[in-house]
């Protein structure tokens, strides 16, 4: 039996039918068994989705063996899922996108697969105009209902500007990095290794924080 309920799976199938562009997702696992505790769960989640549509594809790599590729996409650790439609790999999920983050994964797939990405008024133009490298890290836990809003805003920004790199990081799976950035409340957002803020901000305010930290 699958992980999704019949109802969720029926709903998802209908949603995924709206996809017009193929969505290319790549998965980097690792030989380190402790780190890869969630790898099977990630594979299982992706299988659930791919059983419902042929528009989403998954290729698996290994961070320890496919070093060159990992470096190209600036992959720091594994397991990680990256959206790679534009051979840029700037949209990432570090750790398992379970709990509330499952919705973030699905909504990302729908945005990229349909090309309909919704923005608040005036935000899209300003994001597209940013001509500097921006690294956004969004720390989450799967039980945090406020977190997907922050993840989705960061990922949407990355979808329309290749200079923006947006990572979801599951704090419980990556305690060293969560500690390094002093994550004690989620969502916590770090921009360009510098300043951070807690909480899910509206797109406009999120954008202001990016500009402050350029």
């Amino acid at each position: 039996m699958g992980i999704l309920s019949q109802e969720d799976s029926d709903y998802l199938k209908k949603e995924l039918e709206k996809i017009t562009n193929n969505v290319i997702i790549e998965f980097f696992s690792t030989d380190n068994k402790d780190k890869c505790e969630q790898c099977d769960n990630i594979r299982a989640i992706m299988k659930e989705i791919m059983d419902l549509t042929d528009k989403v594809s998954l290729k698996e790599f290994n961070i320890d063996k496919d070093k060159e590729k990992a470096e190209k996409y600036n992959i720091k650790m594994a397991p990680v899922l990256i959206f790679n439609n534009k051979d840029n790999g700037n949209i990432k999920f570090y750790g398992v996108p379970s709990g509330y983050e499952f919705s973030s994964l699905i909504e990302d797939i729908m945005d990229i697969g349909t090309g309909n990405i919704e923005f608040d008024e005036g935000v899209e133009e300003k994001i597209k105009a940013i001509d500097e490298d921006v690294n956004i890290m969004v720390f989450v836990t799967p039980t945090c209902p406020y977190c997907p809003a922050a993840v989705r805003t960061a990922h949407k920004f990355a979808m329309i500007n290749p200079k923006i790199k947006a990572d979801m990081i599951e704090s419980y799976e990556f305690p060293e990095i969560a500690d390094k950035y002093k994550v004690q409340g989620v969502p916590r957002v770090i921009i360009n290794e510098k300043d951070g803020f807690e909480g899910a901000l509206e797109q406009e305010k999120f954008l202001e924080k990016i500009i402050e930290n350029l």
Partner: peptide, 18 residues
């Protein structure tokens, strides 16, 4: 210290206080 050690949501932030 809000968000830096003080939390109002155990479900959200509990796992960070291992």
């Amino acid at each position: 210290f809000e968000g830096k050690g003080i939390s109002y949501c155990a479900t959200c932030d509990g796992p960070l206080f291992r």
